[in-house]
Write a protein that binds this DNA or RNA. Structure first.
Ligand code: MN
Ligand code: MN
Ligand code: MN
Ligand code: MN
Lengths: 221, 221
DNA sequence: TTATTTTTTTAGCTTTGTCTAAATTTATTT
DNA sequence: AAATAAATTTAGACAAAGCTAAAAAAATAA
């Protein structure tokens, strides 16, 4: 496995994130994800195709091939191990780990990462509940869905928030819900689609339909 | 304190390393240190002068100014803290830590470094015996001398090694000399400048001039 | 099926950091 | 003091990674 630049790695990881089971990723999709102009995407897709990391034909979109997928999993592994380290050992809070891991993930010394993994006790999930690929690139399947679709009595981890307004953040803060919070849905009411959730050692909370649709969780073993 | 690119930081650190109490650093010196061509040095010196990190007049050499020195100390702090982390927590041997720290040092999130420092218990020396600047840039003055200058029958502690090639490390391993090893010089021979040293409970060892010049020790206090 | 809109690509420009080769300045020898 | 050598800077080139604006292709609407 060769070494790639920070830019190449950020593109590879973003394609990995966007590419679902079948479909192609489009230029505009990736441009939005990476916060760059479509012309820059086309440039990089040519480069990554030349490096045999993806399939790409002009105007037809692109997908990582087997090699590109393997590379992506190693970047994801580094990112999530560092996130775990920051939260577990350095006591960073949920909103701080991602940004720092976004930089640390590009230090790609294999021994460093494998020893870090060992030091951390081979954690299987990062602080957002996302699975950490092992040294061979093996990764648990876990599903990310919105809170209103979470089955009853299933422990899940808050992974992200759809709306980013200060209003929703104020409400989440008030209810003590944050990225990484473990919860389960105890009741669902059909009248207004509100739900009741339980967080360890806290009283039952009521969540409105609007709020539930903006909270995304990871679950599944 | 602004952020600097990886390249700028490597140049700043190299100048810090070369610049002694008084004299100027020359273009060729820095070119050799950084393994780049003299023309590249001149380019970067113009850039760092424009950023007000050093004094530089064409053909007259250069020196970090107060601000550049402060920046250098923070890079050195990051480098040595990561080296300590790698040796202490991830069980890297002391000859493996430098290369990895050379990359990690460029992740310049202040909170990351200060929390890492705290997590490590505010270590004062890196695995090579070099002092680690604190969060304010304060650094112990180490009175290091090389083994060939150590007076006879004076107990000293190995603090660092000049050359860090695998060849010298192999030799040091063979002779059971490591950071922290206590020793004293028992004899000096003028013919080839070789010396004989004594390490507690070990037979007398012969050290060549080349080797002695690359072993630095702390003594007295 | 044509026309219009959207998406994507191409062409050309910018910045950063590197290089080689030539010019210039400083230092050292006759 | 010249002449020569060494050190340093300048000039011009290149690759990476981004951008804007224009052209081309694909998708959608009329
Ligand atoms: Mn990143
Ligand atoms: Mn994560
Ligand atoms: Mn470095
Ligand atoms: Mn060191």
């Amino acid at each position: 496995m060769l070494n790639y630049t920070t830019s190449e790695e950020n593109y590879i990881k973003a394609i990995y994130r966007l590419q679902s089971a079948d479909g192609m990723v489009t230029t505009n999709e990736l441009a939005a994800e990476i916060q760059a102009k479509p012309a820059s995407i086309t440039d990089m897709m040519k480069k990554l195709k030349a490096k045999k990391l993806l399939n790409y034909q002009p105007y037809q979109g692109f997908r990582l091939n087997a090699e590109g997928f393997k590379v992506a999993l190693m970047i994801v592994r580094r990112h999530r191990l560092w996130e775990f380290f920051l939260a577990e050992k350095l006591k960073f809070t949920w909103d701080e780990v991602h940004e720092v891991a976004e930089e640390l993930e590009h230090v790609s010394n294999k021994k460093l990462i494998d020893k870090l993994d060992e030091y951390l006790g081979f954690p299987r999930k990062d602080p957002h509940g996302d699975p950490i690929p092992d040294a061979n690139g093996k990764i648990e399947i876990s599903k990310k869905i919105c809170l209103s679709e979470l089955p009853l009595n299933t422990i899940a981890v808050v992974a992200s928030v759809g709306d980013q307004s200060s209003e929703i953040l104020e409400l989440l803060e008030h209810k003590k819900i944050a990225i990484g919070t473990k919860l389960e849905v105890k009741k669902k009411f059909e009248f207004d689609n509100s739900i009741e959730i339980k967080i360890n050692r806290h009283p039952i909370l009521t969540i409105s339909e609007q709020l539930a649709k903006n909270i995304f969780v990871n679950y599944g073993e």
